[in-house]
Amino acid sequence: MMEIELHHLMLESLDGNAASYQLFLRQVSGLLRAYLRRRLSTTPDEVEDLLQETLLAIHAQRHTYRRDALLSPWLYAIARYKLIDYLRRRARHEALHDPLDEEAEYLRVMDDDAHASNKDLTRMLAELPEHQRLPIVHTKLEADR
């Protein structure tokens, strides 16, 4: 869908045509999803959330579109603003949780330990007779799963 067609739909939307607006937003979400996906390749889960935020902004700010202006610069300026806003929020959030990075190392070590003790447990259980081993496995170990 090209600029001219989208521009036409936008003008009809500004005049209150709900069907045009629906079509307009659908076409726009296709464009913006691609735009956001390219820029959020490391966190693809966030694309849909951010797309919805951008659609809401387009809706809330539709009166700032000048009818004689090009449409795509307006659309992408809003998307870009929302993207930067999101990235800034994320950076701030990550800065707040910085200490976790050091802990992550520690947690990984804990995981290794747990794995090792699990191996020990399996080996010792194997030495037990059947009638003692099975009750332990069924009630204590598999009950948690």
Binding site: S13, L14, D15, G16, N17, A18, A19, Y21, Q22, L25, R26, S29, E48, L51, Q52, L55, L56, H59, R62, H63
Partner: peptide, 17 residues
């Protein structure tokens, strides 16, 4: 809410500018 529903919601009761 998925984006499709959001679009339908935004389009219903659209006020002209």
């Amino acid at each position: 809410m998925n984006s499709h529903d959001l679009i339908n919601m935004l389009a219903t009761g659209l006020q002209p500018v």
